[in-house]
């Protein structure tokens, strides 16, 4: 597996050297087309379901998240609301500017990371794993509180290196199929792939309820599904690779309003 990857990278490098397609400042520059969200490609029935707070099953997690935020956790730790008061005001817009670089650690931290940081540091509780109902519920609730807020992540200063890494991953061919994110989500938007219509990978709907999953899932879980699709080596949920890709995707889709939880096939 390791050998195969090295080989793939080598081919990409030779390729880029010969045709200059993978220049440092972004390869195969696509004409600036408007990004197209996957919501645009939903069937009218699914779109109606997404817009209906009772039929959009993701809203079940939003309600659970509100309960988790306001109720004190068992064991006597203060609730999230003890410190953050009314989430409708204190958390509005937060999801739109994450991930961001944490000044103390220098690390890129997304919403999942922020929630877990408060659990560890402020509540003395263990962190929640990705894809647990609790973490999905809290992140869905907090993200939905920013619905309508345009994505506004910073890619300046300390964030610029993470952005560059995310952009590199976006443009790098990977997996046994040897395909880069950009080849699908920039160059093949609107084309069909196994019953899906390829969108521009606008990350505003996550966590999203995916029918295939029969549950809510994080953006990182979706990225895993894409990597699986090209038979690539998967990164860990919450890894620096996915965090960098998350920053890249959110910067690329800046000014697109958050609209979560979305419904996906």
């Amino acid at each position: 597996m390791g050998g195969l990857r090295v080989l793939c990278i080598a081919i990409v490098l030779i390729h880029s050297h010969t045709i200059g397609a993978f220049a440092a400042d972004g390869p195969l520059r696509v004409e600036a087309q408007p990004l197209r969200s996957a919501s645009e490609f939903l069937s009218p029935a699914l779109r109606a379901e997404q817009a209906d707070p009772i039929r959009n099953r993701g809203m079940l997690w939003v309600e659970q998240g509100e309960r988790l935020f306001t109720q004190p956790p068992p064991g006597g730790a203060p609730s999230c609301a003890t410190c953050h008061a009314r989430a409708e005001t204190s958390m509005r817009g937060v999801a739109a500017r994450l991930p961001a670089v944490d000044a103390a650690s220098g690390q890129l931290v997304n919403l999942e990371g922020r929630v877990n940081e408060c659990r560890i540091v402020r509540q003395s509780l263990p962190p929640l794993d990705y894809e647990t109902d609790e973490l999905l519920a809290l992140t869905a609730y907090l993200t939905a509180l920013s619905n309508g807020e345009p994505l506004a992540v910073s890619i300046d200063g300390p964030a610029s290196a993470f952005y560059a890494y995310g952009q590199q991953l976006w443009n790098e061919r990977q997996g046994q199929l040897n395909v880069a994110c950009t080849q699908c989500h920039d160059q093949s938007v609107g084309r069909k792939l196994r019953g899906d219509t390829i969108s521009s990978a606008v990350p505003t709907g996550y966590p999203a309820y995916r029918l295939e999953w029969q549950t809510l899932g994080s953006l990182h879980r979706r990225l895993r599904a894409c990597q699986l699709g090209v038979r690539a080596q998967l990164f860990e949920l919450g890894s620096r690779e996915y965090l960098a890709l998350e920053l890249y995707l959110k910067s690329r889709a800046r000014r697109h309003p958050i609209d979560a939880p979305a419904l996906r096939r």
Binding site: I54, R55, R57, M59, L60, W61, Q64, D133, Q214, T215
Partner: peptide, 10 residues
């Protein structure tokens, strides 16, 4: 009346 409930239905 419309109802939805969170359940994995394994």
């Amino acid at each position: 009346i419309r109802t939805a409930i969170q359940h994995p239905m394994i």
